[in-house]
Nucleic acid binder design. Structure first.
Lengths: 334, 334
DNA sequence: CTGAAAGCGCTTACAG
DNA sequence: CTGAAAGCGCTTACAG
């Protein structure tokens, strides 16, 4: 592990000045082809590796983007993070990621650390709580940042917001359940009071009020185990409920398992629709109807958005809502 | 977005030299408490943020670790990556991650990019193929790197290897199946010829040969959909098979769904054991018996290992194999 | 306990 | 088309 060669070493070896080497590095057209070839040869002979951090000290762009996610274990967020990372990578950017586990103070801490590392921009799917501790430092550091999937700060001019159209998804799902003959529909999962929960529930409340029905909401954590418990609760306490729209696919898959456990037929006895359309929806049996957010596409789009902000120097639209669609499977038409 | 304040600005404001500010930044005991307080006050008034890249140019440690994963969508690897990232974060390190999607050329590309960003070390769960393109540059750049979960290069002194004890896991799983009365056991999933597949199959082959039985191997991709198809294949072509050990949990969960689909009772008609013990195993019904690798703990350990390498300057043991245990659920005793 | 100076590996005007 | 010089924001001996 010796000292890594620098452009000076390359310059010596190639018999040029370090400025010339630098120009070659940047593919400047100013350099004669012959010289360029000479320099490149010297680089590969020395095993030269470019030092971006040094370069970054003079110019602006570090080529590093921060990605902070509230719950990376949830496949929906995992897929989002991967699609962002891979899109950034394809455009020559590296990604610093951090999972915050829905903990605002951990989030504040990792965001500061990421700022110190000199990221050019940040994409954050934020935790709820103590927004100032996270967004204050970002604002002071002047780092372009977009909040995705959840809006936690109001100033969308400074921190633009983007998410799939949860409201429409919710409405489509419930209308579908009504259309396939559901008489009594419950909403299962989602923590009370959160903006996401309200959006994903909005279509449900709207359609039910149009029908003159009372809503039935079983609030709870967005997890498989909550969904599984909900299967028991529904059967025991609300036997008339014949359909459920779930806060997300994890809850729906849990409900699906729970039904298997108590021997209730998914599709005929209980219709289930999930939200997000993660990969498992197509793999379980019966297949799970779900609201597809096309999160991979959404991730690519966010990567492009943030890079455009960087290159154009002006923020993207302060709010972007992307379309969703309902994917119907056996869990609602079985 | 103005220029960010530097230590010089802080020094002026606090009426000291920039060296003193630097010492405060490093919590040097050389600075008088009074001065330190003055400097800190100036920093917070100016909204100073530490620039690690600049610091890194002089000293060594960038506080950045690279994490490169062959398949981040697989929950087993997701959990590994998250646990590494969070452990590093707790120790003040940021993580740059990249998913390679099992593509060796993409892997070579992201590894070069990550090297350029000046990471202090790298943890890689590598793709198979063209190892030189990835490990050559790492070796030349002199970056400490460990290969985890899969060994693809032979030189474990330069690139230490660590993984859970797949062989024991495999043996325990098969012995368990025999103990609960399985008569004819298949091995399902896993791509032929790969070292991981061989290890995860080794116990199976060993135990079966002890019993004087012929092995039955259904090779295939480590996915839910392959497992699901395997359910049909087993019923149609190998009706005597009454138990299966799967390459990983995804295959096992697919097989589990497939059994639901064709109406074959998991546990009584077909016993299934998975590998990895991802979260879903406990959530499906019937619950899935699996070989627990405790990947979260493994991830923490790898984070510590790489940081120890950095601080001690010498590589960890060239091979570390961590213990696994069998978690028995209804899919084998139902 | 604090300050002045050199240097980390690059890029960027500015000359030539 | 190429070179000499300054500077990015820090740290690190070295004086004092």
């Amino acid at each position: 592990m010796e000292r890594r060669p620098t452009i000076i070493d390359v310059a010596h070896k190639a018999g040029v000045s370090k400025s010339t080497v630098s120009l070659v590095l940047q593919n400047s057209p100013l350099v004669k082809d012959e010289t360029r070839a000479e320099v490149r040869r010297a680089m590969s002979e020395l095993g030269y590796v470019y030092n971006r951090m040094a370069a970054n000290m003079r110019s602006a762009n570090a080529g590093l983007i921060g990605l902070v996610i509230n719950d990376l274990r949830n496949p929906f967020f995992t897929e989002f993070a991967i699609s962002v990372q891979m899109a950034l990578s394809a455009r020559g950017y590296a990604t610093v990621v951090a999972n915050t586990d829905e903990d605002p103070s951990l989030q504040a801490q990792v965001v500061s650390a990421i700022i110190e590392h000199g990221v050019s921009a940040l994409i954050i799917s934020p935790a709820y709580g103590d927004e100032e501790a996270t967004f204050g430092p970002l604002a002071r550091a002047g780092i372009p940042a977009i909040q995705v999937l959840r809006q936690v700060v109001a100033d969308v001019d400074r921190f633009p917001f983007a998410a799939p159209d949860y409201e429409s998804g919710s409405r489509m799902a419930v209308e579908h359940l009504v259309a396939v003959g559901a008489r009594r529909i419950a909403f299962v999962g989602g923590l009370e009071g959160r903006a996401v929960t309200q959006k994903r529930m909005s279509g449900y409340l709207e359609v039910l009020s149009g029908l003159g029905q009372q809503p039935l909401v079983l609030s709870g954590r967005p997890t498989r185990s909550f969904g599984r418990e909900a299967a028991m609760v529904l059967q025991r306490d609300y036997p008339l409920v014949d359909a459920a729209i779930c806060f997300n696919d994890l809850v729906a898959l849990g409900l699906h398992s729970g039904c298997a456990e108590i021997g209730r037929a998914v599709g005929s006895e209980l219709k289930i629709v999930g939200f997000d359309d993660i990969e498992d929806c197509a793999q379980v049996w019966p297949g799970l109807t779900s609201v597809r957010c096309d999160i991979a596409e959404f991730g690519h789009r966010m990567a492009d958005t943030v890079l455009a902000w960087l290159s154009e120097g002006k923020p993207p639209p302060s709010e972007v809502i992307t379309p969703v669609q309902l994917v119907v499977r056996a869990s609602t038409v079985g």
